[in-house]
Write a protein that binds this DNA or RNA. Structure first.
Length: 946
RNA sequence: GGAGGGGUAGCAAAGCUUGGCCAAAUGUGCAGCGUUCAGGGCGCUGUCCCUUUGUGGGUUCGUGGGUUCAAAUCCCACCCCCUCCACCA
């Protein structure tokens, strides 16, 4: 069977007949299922493939259970990535053009057409969106996901924008939004905020904004401003370092005279300060003079060649006890005749004690790491990092820290900063985490947005509601609940708008675009109404806050249209299950809960979140740079949707990383082919007429399956098969209900396949026919969520009506009475005999000509039963063959089900003879004088090989 | 530092919630046999060590203790590895 043909056939059929586009139906229970929409910036990979495959199993199972399942999808385009693709192509960026040429080539064979499409990306970002969104649908469809594609939209659509504006309007009304200053990376040339994509090497070496504390050191008519990440060491300051050859300025900053490096004065203007440069000076001009620390201590100003004028304020205060750089610098100055006398008077002042260090830890490290001078920057950086970590987390303030003595260093850091700020001796200083350049060539610096908009998760009552919502939700795997609780506890404020990118304008401040995670938290509600809004031809301008207030909150008055739209929402909401990758937990999923809890009434709060872990390829993490990203299109093309889905579900639990290994996929392909060969055989058998002439198979017109009306031969093997399958069907369903998808797949696929293979080695054609008639369709059905294309194909071939995807999941009634423990025990017994024979055969060291199975006598059975009456194995004290045997397997034998050994072995004689290629005699112990007869035990016949 | 996950045979990976049918599923690798058998595929068998004309014995599930008639599984301590800690979507 060619998987591509079959998969395409059913994908087309589903699409043509709109198999997964549900309508509201008050008579049916609904199930509203969602997976986050994909971002439209290129190709989908196996990671998406796994998440959606897992989702699809849930959705399909619910559908077969009779729920009216809605699983829609849409496209996320908010923010800068799409713009970046477009602008880079417009700028002729070779790497970007190549990347997208490669990707488009997957779908287009004509090279001229590829070039044309890629070029079009450069002329309008919407061309990127429109092209790729179509391809994403294509990719998803090829995986057989049962998505409702009729509700597609992008986050840049006018209707969607109106929806998000309503959401933010409501947030504002609820008091969830605040405005405050906020530092961001900023390009001085573009005069705009920049993101990862705008910064050179920003993707491989991301740039963030660090907050330093600026200390004011009184100097002449103003203050020198030093910058530090470690304000907790303020009591240990011994001197100031300046770079002699650097240019500094004296400037009036917010009305106060400050001395900082010249570059920093410029940056300060963009950090929300009013800066007027008064005069220039060289670092050398400051040398030899004194300044006064924020604590009022007079210290000398010394030369520091290591000070970077381009980094922060270009002034560094010195804490030799705790900063390896400072200590080494001072040691070097001691060798300089000019500074020797001053420097020799400087003693390190210990302020923090950390376990494993002396009170001058910087010296410990310098000595241990054998750092000779300032040129050994690598070692110094390492020492600094190590000490910082150790002191911050484990350090305690020493008596030198005065009122802070005894405090943990991590606490003291905050308290001291606060204290110095209150005294007017400290300010916030912002700097980028590394020197960075914008793609336009301009310098990237840390700027401060004076009026950044924030979502305030600590706004009155919000967090409480979100926590309540979470507590009522099912979280699977359950271990992630704690993680949600932790995230909720420390969520504070989050910037929710940006100055650039695609998306929705803030309704109350249109210069701002709603940030890309913030515009995707309540949109599940939009899915429920978008179709009706379009049907009713309601234009975007009419989608006012009042309209949505009515639709989602039932507030105010409404016309017929709004009423119709609200009816859709009320039918589908709440979101019954949201499934996605674990990576989204700390942000998207948390915001999703907050958004719902903050805006909608409790009856519309989401019910469940299910999560799956990531995907790696051949044991290593996938990344573009390694070139080992497996695209979803590759999968559809080379692996096949059904095989991939089967692999993704059977190979790893939801909570475990999935390793995509070509070799394992191949192994699974062979198993899947085995399944198909059995289904092929069964399909043919099920259609055949009975051949024994006793009864006739009657094909019930319109019913899915032929039903045998003749008396079914009560063949034990058939009963065994039914018993196995009854249990398989039952456990498959309960496993999915319990979210244990791997168990489900193991049961419905592997366990069933193994049973069928075993059956096939033993069964006659009649028996197989019977199994085929009763078991093929239930089996196809329970595998439908997993391998839907194959399921449809065999469903059709076996006479199934409609889509297998719409067939009802087998009810308990349909396999009622199949369970037959005794028959299963009998088969187990037979297999244990076979296994015993196999153990014995190599030991007899001859080619067997005949075998005799000797069944234990009635007297032995009584004896055996008596022994088994013991409470524990230890109570069996004898040393007979039987006692020794029972003692060893006491607990296993105690629960064994007794079977009619003679009957089973006699019935199975033909099978045994075929399996071993020799004739078999079955005799009872009392009726023979075979030399091995006393080895016979109940449940374990003696074997005699001739 | 906080939170979470994990260490099982050559490798990968189940099992641990609910202790005993666990020398431990499954796949892969390796070996043998078979197959109208070039290869591949397919089928069967074996794959911790020892032993064997009889279905046996020994030692294993990171390390060390403990509970129990019984521990991969429960408890305690220790060692090692991995992931996440945001404003990038």
């Amino acid at each position: 069977m060619d998987f591509k043909t079959v998969e395409a056939k059913w994908q087309n059929a589903w699409a043509e007949q709109k198999a997964f586009e549900p309508e509201t139906d008050p008579k049916r229970a609904k199930f509203f299922f969602t997976v986050p929409y994909p971002y439209v910036s290129g190709s989908l990979h196996v990671g998406h493939g796994r998440t959606y495959a897992v989702g699809d199993v849930f959705a399909r199972f619910k559908r077969m259970q009779g729920f009216n399942v809605l699983w829609p999808m849409a496209f996320h385009i908010t923010g800068t990535p799409v713009l970046a693709i477009s602008s880079k192509i417009a700028d002729g960026d070779a790497a970007t053009i190549q990347l997208h040429t490669d990707y488009v080539s997957v779908y287009e064979s004509n090279p001229a057409r590829v070039t044309q499409i890629v070029q079009s990306f450069g002329t309008d970002p919407w061309n990127v969106v429109n092209y790729y969104s179509g391809k994403l649908v294509h990719d998803f469809s090829r995986m057989g996901y049962s998505l409702d594609l009729s509700r597609q939209f992008t986050t840049g659509d006018a209707e969607y924008n109106r929806f998000v504006q309503w959401q933010f309007h409501t947030y504002k009304g609820n008091g969830f939004i605040t405005q405050a200053a906020y530092p961001i990376p900023y390009c001085v040339r573009d005069k705009n905020a920049v993101g990862e994509d705008d910064i050179k090497d920003g993707d491989s070496d991301p740039v963030s904004v660090q907050t330093f504390v600026g200390f004011k050191f009184a100097y002449e008519d103003g203050f020198l401003v030093s910058s530090t990440l470690r304000p907790d060491t303020v009591f240990g300051i011994t001197n100031m370092f300046v770079r002699p050859d650097a240019t500094y300025v004296k400037a009036s900053v917010d009305g106060q005279v400050l001395y900082v490096s010249q570059p920093f004065a410029e940056k300060m203007r963009l950090q929300n300060h009013d800066v007027k440069v008064l005069s220039d000076l060289k670092g050398a001009d400051l040398l030899g003079k004194n300044c006064t620390t924020p604590l009022g201590k007079t210290v000398p100003i010394l030369p520091g060649a290591f000070v970077e004028p381009d980094h922060a304020t270009g002034l560094v205060h010195s804490v030799p006890a705790h900063a390896p750089f400072d200590l080494v610098a001072l040691n070097e100055l001691k060798k300089d005749a000019k500074w020797k006398s001053i420097v020799e008077k400087i003693e390190p002042i210990p302020v923090i004690l950390a376990p494993g260090y002396s009170d001058v830890p910087a010296r410990d490290l310098v000595e241990r790491m054998k750092i000779a001078n300032l040129k050994e920057k690598g070692k110094l950086d390492k020492a600094t990092a190590e000490l910082y970590k150790k002191e911050f987390y484990e350090g305690t303030m020493l008596p030198n820290a005065k009122q802070f003595a005894g405090m943990k260093a991590s606490d003291a850091k905050e308290k001291m900063t606060e204290w110095l700020k209150t005294k007017g001796m400290a300010i916030d200083i912002f700097e980028t985490s590394r020197p960075a350049q914008c793609r336009c060539g301009g310098q990237v610096i840390a700027a401060v947005m004076a009026d950044q908009w924030f979502l305030n998760f600590n706004a009155a009552g919000w967090k409480e509601k979100a926590t309540r919502c979470l507590s009522q939700m099912e979280i699977f795997p359950p271990l992630y609940r704690k993680q949600f609780e932790d995230v909720f506890a420390w969520l504070d404020k989050r910037p929710c708008a940006r100055r650039r990118g695609l998306g929705t304008r803030l309704p109350f401040n249109e210069e701002w675009i709603v940030e890309s995670l913030s515009d995707s938290t309540l949109y599940m509600a939009f899915y429920t109404v978008v179709k009706k809004i379009r049907e009713e031809k309601i234009h975007a301008e009419k989608l006012t806050p009042a309209f949505f207030d009515y639709v989602f909150l039932g507030k105010g008055h409404a016309d017929a249209q709004a009423k119709a739209v609200r009816a859709e929402f009320l039918y589908w909401y709440p979101n019954d299950q949201r499934h996605t990758a674990v990576a989204h937990l700390t942000n998207h999923l948390s915001f999703f809960i907050f958004a719902h809890a903050g805006i909608l009434p409790p009856e519309q709060w989401p019910k469940a979140i299910t999560l799956n872990e990531m995907v790696v390829s051949e044991g290593t993490k996938m990344s573009k740079s390694k070139g080992n990203v497996v695209s979803l299109n590759d999968i559809a093309e080379n692996t096949g949707a059904d095989l991939f889905r089967l692999y993704a579900i059977t190979t790893a639990d939801l909570g475990a990383t999935l390793d995509f290994r070509a070799k394992d996929v191949d192994a699974l392909r062979r198993r899947l082919n085995k399944l198909f060969s059995i289904w092929d055989e069964w399909t043919v058998l099920a259609k055949e007429q009975e051949t024994n002439g006793k009864g006739k198979a009657k094909t019930v017109i319109g019913k899915s399956m032929t039903v045998t009306t003749d008396a079914t031969p009560e063949k034990p093997l058939v009963r065994w098969m039914q018993s196995k399958f009854g249990s398989i069907i039952e456990r498959s369903g309960t496993a999915i209900e319990k979210r244990a998808l791997r168990d489900y797949a193991q049961t419905a696929f592997f366990e069933a396949l193994n049973a069928a293979e075993h059956f096939a080695t033993r069964a006659t054609v009649e028996e197989k026919r019977h199994a085929a008639r009763t078991l093929l369709q239930p089996w196809v059905k329970i595998l439908c969520p997993l391998i839907p294309h194959a399921a449809e194909e065999y469903w059709e071939q076996s006479g199934g009506r409609g889509f297998a995807s719409h067939a009802p999941w087998p009810t308990p009634k349909s396999y009622d009475g199949w369970k037959d423990e005794k028959t299963e025990a009998a088969e187990d017994f037979l297999m244990s005999v076979v296994s015993d024979i196999r153990t014995i055969l190599p030991m007899v060291k001859k080619k067997p000509a005949k075998m005799t199975l000797i069944i234990a006598s009635a007297q032995k059975r009584r004896q055996y039963a008596d022994i088994l009456k013991a409470e524990t194995a230890d109570q069996i004290t004898g040393d007979s063959f039987m006692e020794n045997f029972v003692r060893k397997r006491f607990y296993e034998l105690k629960h064994a089900i007794a079977v009619d050994e003679t009957a089973i072995l006699t019935q199975s004689r033909a099978y045994l003879q075929t399996a071993f290629g020799v004739p078999f005699d079955i005799v009872e112990e009392d009726a023979t004088d075979n030399p091995r007869k006393e080895k016979a035990l109940p449940g374990k016949p003696a074997v005699y090989v001739e």
